[in-house]
Design a protein around this nucleic acid. Sequence first.
DNA 1: TGATTTATGTACCGCTTCGTATAAATAAGC
DNA 2: GCTTATTTATACGAAGCGGTACATAAATCA
Lengths: 240, 240
Amino acid sequence: MVQKRKPPAPRAQTKARTESSKTEPPKPRSAKPQPPSGGVPPKRRGRPRAYEPDVALSRALDVFWKDGFAATSLDDLSAATGMNRPSLYGAFGDKRELYKKTYESYRNRARARMGEAFAADMPLRPMLLRIYGIALDMYLSGEGGPRGCFTVMTATSEAVFDPDIRALVVSGLVEMDRFFARLFKIAQERGELPASADPQVLASLASATIHSIAIRARAQMPRAELEALVNGAVDVMVRG
Amino acid sequence: MVQKRKPPAPRAQTKARTESSKTEPPKPRSAKPQPPSGGVPPKRRGRPRAYEPDVALSRALDVFWKDGFAATSLDDLSAATGMNRPSLYGAFGDKRELYKKTYESYRNRARARMGEAFAADMPLRPMLLRIYGIALDMYLSGEGGPRGCFTVMTATSEAVFDPDIRALVVSGLVEMDRFFARLFKIAQERGELPASADPQVLASLASATIHSIAIRARAQMPRAELEALVNGAVDVMVRG
DNA sequence: TGATTTATGTACCGCTTCGTATAAATAAGC
DNA sequence: GCTTATTTATACGAAGCGGTACATAAATCA
């Protein structure tokens, strides 16, 4: 079962996919039109888009992030993005493809934020606290209340049904582990950690702490409580 | 938005709920018939049930656990339990109530398993390893692949929409924290942990490790990897 | 200007969803 | 056997669902 909603009968989705009525697979015409090389508008041919792909994707992210895949309808996405369903389909493909693109954009955003922190190049403890601060900002954001982490809360649930999503999730988890491991390794080389410390183990503890605050944030535990938790965890980690 | 699927129009669900066409709120007639006092069949009046409430609930759990709330249809539940929809409704109420009962039964099951381990009363390290072993058994179980932790994977997502569920989730998280805290406190009193160790902090690390393996299990990371992660985390924890 | 290209907006399609009305079945009480 | 209580089984209904045809709109190109 590929996550309920059996394909809407061998109608057109399947037809387009397997028989290619016009030699063309349903390639969503791509959101990023072409390599713009310059920064100037590349003079597209037909009627101009009424939406900005990035903005639309970010609005869709808001909805999927809060509601998850199954509970989000195309009407919801339509309302959130301001695009009607056919445009949505044309731009991003079907619901599942849109979800994946959405998730990737989330990952990019998260990676960028963490990258900034990493680049700041500070001692271990403040670095960790800063990273967790960024994480908390993300997890507690959202108009409809805290949403936790997209990877943890909705993508991992979906991972059971879709190999692509599972691969994305696994790579996300591993990426975070590696990120922390690098951090601890650098700290160790600088003498901020005892030689006996195992960066790998500390990294998985650091990731686990991320996972834990993501969950607790979604359950609406107050920020102060989460910060206390983080402080305690960091204390243990910087000790090695 | 109370998790999509807007109430099926002010039809009968609402009517029954608010106007009580027969003075009777839709009390699902209770799964456990009455205080049986003895163990003998209490001679009920009408046609006998063709299902056992506990068994049905456990089958429903399997489905919700894997698919989550939104993606599970009443037909799925019907197929899994062998009960048809009206019986399901009569016994457990609507989908949401069934979900909550299901979640409670999951919690009871988990609590019982952890309680057993706790009662064994062994030194800290083997105790922790045993607890994580039990957790891994649960999270990796399931015919359709590993399902992770119900609390973490599906209930917390749902927590945003339903205060009851959120309360259940929070109590579950707190319960686990307390469980670990008691464990570490006892160990400390026995001298298995340095006096400087903070049982509270260690407990939240222990919980975080649970959360992390729940997520990773659902993403289908291999058991060996999860066990290695657990071993590392336990090493750090028993050191204080 | 008219052809071409791309995007939009409306309306539709077949199917699924949750819940319930209704009728049949199976037991106890009298 | 008849009534009453409780459960099962069938079937229905309104709304929601994902996806798409089709007509229209707005731009470029010739």
